[in-house]
Design a protein around this nucleic acid. Sequence first.
DNA 1: GTTCGTGCAAACGGTTTGCAACAAT
DNA 2: ATTGTTGCAAACCGTTTGCACGAAC
Lengths: 145, 145
Amino acid sequence: MKTRPSDASRDDLNQALRSFGIQPSAQRLAIAAFVLRNASHPSAEDVYNAVERALPMLSRATVYNTLNLFVERGLLRELWLAEGKVVFDPKLDRHHHFLDESTGAIHDIPWDALEVAKVEALDGFEVREFQVVLRGTRKPRPSGD
Amino acid sequence: MKTRPSDASRDDLNQALRSFGIQPSAQRLAIAAFVLRNASHPSAEDVYNAVERALPMLSRATVYNTLNLFVERGLLRELWLAEGKVVFDPKLDRHHHFLDESTGAIHDIPWDALEVAKVEALDGFEVREFQVVLRGTRKPRPSGD
DNA sequence: GTTCGTGCAAACGGTTTGCAACAAT
DNA sequence: ATTGTTGCAAACCGTTTGCACGAAC
């Protein structure tokens, strides 16, 4: 059977999961498909709502278990930035985060957009990773929307 | 009656609360006493456990209500750094945070210990505040403990 | 007497867990 | 047959809320 584009991306996902030591399944593929191509920062509930449309039998427990598995295996990162609710981040490369305090939206800030110095000079702390967390509001752009 | 040192600090707390628009009460004073002089980062449960020893009748609801009131009035800040649990920070001046991943401890990093540049240059973002969140482990110091 | 703070217990919302059914190897 | 995944429902845990009591102005 010929491989259609959707099959191809499905195979890619399959590979991606396997390369992280995650045995694929219908549910895991569907969750990965949503989370990985959705560069926003979905909560578990967001994931459930989105994936449940394609997989009506999906249970919340599976979503939680799967997301936790993905985090454990390094496919995702979890962020506890505010609101007492975890969100998941598919971007594995370093970046910072901006929280819009009026909308609650989370925006990625490219790593190179900021410069953080003297981290290595911190005495007594072995820093494995760091990020800048900024809070404020989105500014109306001078021109355009 | 002469003012003993403990009374003096109690009066200070009284003043502190009033200056933030918070009407003092026995419970609020006790909670403020613990949280303000305890520069660590207690959770609501930590506060309850500590203050409950001095005020056995204290209820958790009061602790939560009081902490939320303090945050609302600007006496405290709340941090959601990890673990799905809020912790409270009595330090109102800017500083960064280091999370020890092996102990869960939160350490303050003085503002000037790090340098963050280009924040003002972020296009489209009105930054009200920011901080660096670092993760890793405490390093055994070269000498001493 | 009205306002405000407290304690209690119940409710709440997000997350986890125990377990039985089931799919894959 | 064994291993691993899913769905369901109940449990869990941190937090909030409704309400009645009691203290303070």
